[in-house]
Simulated assay, not measured.
Amino acid sequence: MAETSETTWFADDVATFGDRLEAAREAANLTQDELAQRLGVRDTTIAAWEAEEWEPRGNRLQMLAGMLNVSLMWLMTGAGAGLGGPQDEDALPLGARLALAEIAELRGQMQDLTEKLRRAEDKLETEMRGAAA
């Protein structure tokens, strides 16, 4: 049985926190500036969150979820009460479904590479500390 867009469209393997934040903000008919004013931050902060340049602190996450009428879990992971996708993924043209699958695969590869990079950085840092001692 195929999953619906409500369970997959904004999931972690398809969308990022920034994607979900932007979609929820737009669904609430708010500009970045309007959301920033309500939250008490600069509009550049909202833009940086949506672009995955910065991450909000926990208290801001809770406030965002409340202001955007989505669950905190959905905002962070895509699971739980939030937004559905624009339409049922099975109704999308084959090319769009293939593109979404490719994006999900590439995102997984990026996550694997990010973890490998983190481990290599940890090794380098350990070696540098050992050399400095």
Rank of each mutant, 00 (worst) to 15 (best):
R129S: 03
M73V: 13
L21P: 05
D112Y: 11
G82D: 00
M76L: 12
R38W: 05
N59E: 14
W54D: 11
L64V: 10
V14W: 15
A132M: 13
F10E: 03
R118M: 10
E121C: 06
D12V: 00
A120Y: 00
T77Q: 00
G58F: 14
K123S: 07
E125F: 11
G66I: 03
L106N: 07
R97K: 05
A11C: 00
Q62P: 03
A91W: 10
L64E: 08
A99V: 00
D13V: 14
L64F: 08
L117H: 06
E89H: 07
T45D: 04
A104C: 09
L124S: 04
L30K: 06
D33L: 10
A131Y: 09
E26R: 15
D43K: 08
K116L: 10
E55K: 15
M76A: 11
A48D: 09
F10P: 04
E6R: 14
Q37A: 14
Q111C: 09
L94M: 07
W54R: 14
N69C: 05
A96N: 07
G58Q: 13
E50P: 06
G58T: 13
W74Y: 05
G58E: 13
I46E: 01
E89Q: 06
A133I: 12
A51S: 13
D122V: 10
D88A: 14
L35G: 00
W74V: 01
R25V: 02
S5Y: 01
A24W: 04
D122S: 07
E34I: 01
L30D: 08
L61M: 12
R118L: 09
G84S: 15
A133E: 15
E6F: 06
M63I: 14
D13C: 12
L75M: 05
A131K: 04
I103W: 10
A132D: 13
L100C: 06
E89Y: 09
E89V: 09
R107S: 02
L64I: 11
D112I: 08
N29F: 11
M128Q: 13
Q87Y: 08
M76T: 05
A24C: 07
G40I: 04
E3K: 10
R20T: 04
L72F: 06
R60W: 12
D88Q: 08
P56S: 05
L106Y: 13
D122C: 08
E34C: 03
R129W: 11
A132N: 13
D43T: 13
R60K: 14
R97C: 02
A2Q: 14
T31S: 11
E89N: 07
A131P: 00
A101M: 11
R107P: 04
L100I: 06
A79C: 04
W49A: 01
R25E: 05
R118H: 12
L75C: 04
G108P: 10
A47K: 11
L92F: 11
T31K: 01
G82T: 00
R60G: 05
E102W: 15
E125C: 11
A131T: 04
E115Q: 15
A15Y: 01
D19H: 09
E53C: 05
G18Q: 03
M128N: 09
E115H: 12
A96G: 02
L21W: 03
L64R: 02
M73K: 14
Q87N: 12
V41R: 01
L68C: 10
